[in-house]
Simulated assay, not measured.
Amino acid sequence: MSLTTQYIQKTQAILATIEQQADIIQQAASWFSQTILAGRMVHLFGSGHSRIMVEEMWPRYGSFPGFNPIVELSISFHNLVVGANGQRQAMFLENVPGLAQRILRNYDLSKLDSALVISSSGCNVVPIEMAEIFQQQGVKVVALITKQHAEKSTSKRMDGKKLSDFANLTLDTGAPVGDAMLTIPGLDTPVAPGSTVGGAVIVNCIKAEVARLLTEAGHPPNVLSAANVVGPERAVTLFESAYDEHAHRLAKLYERVGIPSSVSGPGPNRT
């Protein structure tokens, strides 16, 4: 059997694992749609390669506003590999306690918000602390992990807690321990990871279910669509309106954040 066939078969097994989580996906979509209908945003976070899932959710074709992609380049920019801004620094920083708090200091969180935090191992400090802070602020947290890999991994936190310990709901990418799925004769280390495949499928299932719920509620989303599908004029209108809506939603996360200023909006303890 060719390696290509093997990978496809293992991917089919991942899809079967995801299909078994249909009810959990529906629950996540329900929380996310409620956030968006309330005029707020679903916060998305992932360090390292988990950033891929953040960008898969929004913005790209077939996606829509309502999601706040929190992408920290210091812990997710891999292109240079070595030297300044290299991978060693990123892997170090994603386990620095307190960084999550500094990231979320930029936002005025609300109990109406919800969050998707992605970490295959569920054991790196920054994603765990992000979920912990979200929960402390009353934000519902959906964790996207690789269950088998997370169970066999050791948390980098001093107390041993993992991402799933701070999640209201946990989804599984279906990939194996170590992520890589194929063994090649003569090579003692496996290749070809599977968590990205599973994660992307889950993210798009959630996205589709959220779009359905928004539409059924009478608020169909402004979906980024290709010109060869909806025509060039409507494509431009959809893109512009979606980006503007994103800006308007994002503004709410900034207007009352932190220390009041002469231009800040009224806050819970402000007059």
Results as ranks from 00 to 15, higher is better:
Ser2Gln: 14
Tyr7Val: 14
Gln9Arg: 14
Lys10His: 12
Leu15Thr: 07
Gln21Glu: 08
Gln27Phe: 05
Ala28Arg: 05
Ala29His: 06
Trp31Ser: 07
Trp31Asp: 08
Gln34Pro: 10
Thr35Ser: 14
Ala38Gln: 11
Ala38Phe: 06
Met41Asn: 05
Met41Glu: 06
Val42Gln: 00
Gly46Trp: 00
Ser47Arg: 06
Gly48Ser: 08
Gly48Cys: 09
Gly48Asn: 06
Gly48Ala: 06
Ile52Lys: 00
Met53Cys: 00
Val54Ile: 11
Pro59Trp: 11
Arg60Tyr: 14
Gly62Pro: 08
Gly62Ser: 13
Gly62Val: 10
Gly66Trp: 10
Pro69Trp: 12
Ile70Pro: 10
Val71Met: 15
Glu72Ser: 14
Glu72Met: 15
Ser76Lys: 13
Ser76Ile: 13
Gln87Asp: 02
Arg88Pro: 07
Gln89Ile: 12
Gln89Val: 14
Ala90Ser: 12
Met91Leu: 15
Phe92Met: 11
Leu93Pro: 08
Leu93Cys: 10
Val96Lys: 01
Pro97Arg: 03
Gly98Glu: 00
Leu99Cys: 00
Leu99Ser: 06
Gln101Asn: 05
Gln101Pro: 04
Arg102Tyr: 02
Leu104Arg: 07
Tyr107Gly: 08
Asp108Cys: 12
Val117Ala: 07
Val117Arg: 05
Ser119Arg: 03
Ser120His: 03
Val126Arg: 03
Pro127Tyr: 07
Pro127Trp: 04
Pro127Glu: 05
Glu132Cys: 05
Glu132Ile: 03
Phe134Val: 13
Gln137Lys: 13
Lys140Pro: 12
Ala143Glu: 07
Leu144Ile: 14
Lys147Pro: 01
Ala150Gln: 01
Ala150Ile: 00
Lys152Val: 11
Ser153Gly: 02
Arg157Met: 05
Met158Lys: 09
Asp159Gln: 05
Gly160Val: 02
Gly160Trp: 05
Lys161Asp: 00
Lys162Arg: 02
Ser164Thr: 01
Phe166Thr: 01
Thr173Gln: 03
Ala175Met: 04
Asp179Tyr: 02
Asp179Phe: 00
Met181His: 03
Ile184Tyr: 00
Pro185Trp: 03
Gly186Tyr: 04
Pro190Asn: 10
Val191Asn: 04
Ser195Lys: 13
Val197Met: 15
Gly199His: 12
Val201Arg: 12
Val203Leu: 15
Asn204Lys: 13
Lys207Phe: 04
Lys207Ile: 08
Glu209Trp: 05
Ala211Thr: 01
Thr215Glu: 15
Gly218Thr: 12
Pro220Cys: 12
Pro221Glu: 10
Asn222Trp: 09
Val223Ile: 13
Asn228Leu: 04
Val229Arg: 01
Val230Phe: 04
Pro232Tyr: 01
Val236Ser: 03
Leu238Tyr: 00
Tyr243His: 05
Asp244Ile: 07
Glu245Phe: 03
Glu245His: 00
Arg249Lys: 12
Ala251Phe: 15
Lys252Met: 12
Tyr254Arg: 10
Glu255Val: 15
Val257Glu: 09
Gly258Thr: 13
Ile259His: 11
Pro260Asn: 10
Ser261Asn: 11
Ser262Ala: 14
Ser262Leu: 14
Ser262Val: 14
Ser264Arg: 11
Pro266Lys: 15
Asn269Pro: 02
Thr271Gln: 13
